[in-house]
Simulated assay, not measured.
Amino acid sequence: MIAMAALSGSPFRGMVIAPADVSEIVEPALRRSRRATVRLSRVTLKSMRLVHRRRIELMADYIVRRLSAIYRTTPYIPELHPFYRELASLLVDVDDLRRRLAKLKAATKVIRKIERDCLVMVRAAERRGDLMRARRAFLGRVLSVLEDLKEDLRAIREYQLRLLKVPDIDPELHTIVVAGPPNVGKSSFVRRVSTAEPEVREYPFTTKSLILGHVIIDDLYVQVIDTPGLLDRPLSERNEAELQAILALKHLAGVIVFLVDPSQTCGYDVQYQVRVYREVREHFSQTPILVCLNKVDVASREQVGAAKSLMEGDVIEMSVATGLNVDLVLARALRLLGVPDYYVAKLSASEQRSLSRRSSSS
Rank of each mutant, 00 (worst) to 15 (best):
I17E: 13
I289W: 03
I316C: 09
E282N: 14
R136N: 12
A107V: 06
I111P: 04
P204M: 08
V184S: 06
V276D: 12
R154L: 03
L40F: 10
K113H: 02
E27S: 14
G305H: 05
V92C: 13
S23K: 05
L336N: 01
V339G: 06
L119I: 14
R136L: 13
P181G: 02
V177A: 05
R332V: 00
L91I: 11
P228N: 05
V92P: 12
R54H: 11
Q244G: 05
S194I: 10
V94D: 07
E199Y: 13
S144W: 12
L58H: 12
V22E: 13
A349T: 14
A245D: 14
L334V: 02
A349N: 13
L220S: 03
E302M: 00
V94W: 10
L104R: 04
G338H: 10
R100V: 09
D269C: 06
N294R: 06
A241K: 05
T227C: 01
G229I: 10
R238H: 06
P78V: 12
S359P: 03
L101F: 00
V315K: 02
R53L: 01
E312Q: 11
R13E: 13
L328I: 08
L293C: 03
R53T: 02
Y203D: 02
R278N: 15
A345M: 09
I70M: 09
G9C: 00
D168V: 07
L146C: 09
R332E: 13
R162P: 07
V177Q: 08
P28V: 12
N183Y: 05
D93P: 01
A333V: 07
M15N: 13
V22N: 11
Y268C: 00
G180I: 03
E312F: 09
P288E: 10
L330E: 08
E57C: 01
D148W: 08
S300G: 08
A137T: 15
H81C: 10
A137R: 15
A6I: 15
A253V: 09
R112F: 06
K103W: 07
F284I: 09
V304T: 05
V326C: 04
N294V: 07
L104Y: 01
K165P: 02
I2T: 06
M121S: 14
D261G: 06
R281C: 06
L87H: 02
V64N: 11
P78S: 09
R154Q: 02
M132V: 14
V270D: 00
K295T: 07
L328C: 02
L143N: 15
D61G: 11
Q244S: 00
Q271V: 12
I216R: 11
S41F: 10
D269N: 10
Q303K: 03
E197H: 13
V298P: 07
K109I: 08
E197G: 00
A29K: 14
A321C: 07
E57G: 01
S360A: 14
V190G: 04
F138M: 11
L164N: 03
Q223T: 04
V326K: 09
S285K: 11
Y221A: 04
R42K: 01
E237D: 00
Q286L: 14
S47N: 01
S8K: 15
D148S: 15
T227W: 06
V260D: 05
L161A: 04
V276A: 12
V276R: 10
E199P: 13
L131Q: 11
H81K: 12
P340W: 04
V110S: 15
Y342I: 11
P262R: 00
